[in-house]
Each structure stands twice: as C-alpha cells, then as structure tokens.
C-alpha cells in the first residue's frame, strides 16, 4: 500500500477532472482519471484504486452501470465509490445506494466535501479490502 492512496476519478467533463485532481493531489492523494464508464472500469480493474470518484451521466457507459460492474467483479466488489453527480433524480440516488455507493454528493460540491468524504471512506477498516 503506497503512502499516498490512489483515487480514480471518472467524469466526462475534463475541467471537473482537472479541478478535482488538483484538489486531491494537494490533499495527499494520487490520482488516475478516466472520461467514461468503460475506460473507468478498465482502469479500476487494472490499477485497483483505494476509492473511485464517479460521475453518473457519461458517454459509452454511465456511472451506475460502471458501479454495477465494479460490484460484480471480485477484485472491486468492495472498493468504496463516491458518486459526484449533477443528477438530482431520487431513482439514481436509490440505485446508487442499492449498489453500496459510500456517498452521493451533488454537483456543485461544497468546499471540502469531497476530501472529507474520501478521508472518511478510507479511514473505515473495511475499506482497505
């Protein structure tokens, strides 16, 4: 386990990815990024990040499908996932909850929300698995 936990950011908006990456790096995380669900899934399976920050509405494969895929494969079954989405539908929130997303954060984020969500998620003992 590296000292700087590896986080995978999956969002089709490159500006969002850039801003979040900068934030996370400053706060002591290493960051990988992907711009759609399929790319994100492949990267998650290959690099096994400590946590995934996931958007919902994306091309190729949307976030909920990617989350379901993560849950279906043994190596990523328990990887903590923080949803960061502009989607406000209750159905999306429910579905994310069913798939054991750790947090469902609404865009725009409030200062510090993402960092504290990740800090919490990574401090849980079961998150290490």
């Amino acid at each position: 386990m590296s000292e700087r936990p590896l986080i995978l950011i999956v969002d089709d908006d490159r500006d969002i990815v850039r801003g979040m990456s900068l934030r996370l790096r400053v706060n002591g995380y290493d960051v990988l990024s992907a711009y759609d669900g399929a790319q994100g899934l492949a990267l998650a399976r290959k690099s096994l990040p400590r946590a995934v920050v996931l958007d919902l509405r994306m091309p190729v494969m949307d976030g909920l499908t990617m989350l379901a895929e993560l849950r279906a494969s043994p190596t990523t079954r328990t990887t903590p996932v923080v949803i960061v989405s502009a989607n406000v539908a209750d159905s999306a929130r429910k579905r994310a909850m069913q798939l054991d997303a750790s947090y469902f954060l609404q865009k725009p984020l409030r200062d510090g929300d993402l960092i504290s969500a990740l800090d919490t998620v990574l401090s849980c003992p079961e998150a290490a698995g």
């Binding site: 500006d15 969002i16 801003g19 406000v88």
Partner: peptide, 21 residues
Amino acid sequence: VDNVSHEFRTPLAVIKEFTSI
C-alpha cells in the same frame, strides 16, 4: 426543469471549483 437543473450544475461546479482553487 430537471434537465436545466442538471445542465446548469456542471458548469457551476467547474466555476466554483476553480474559483476556490
């Protein structure tokens, strides 16, 4: 209204993030 809300949030998120950066 749902769609507008979604479409507004993303640019707002970017402006907010970089302002605070």
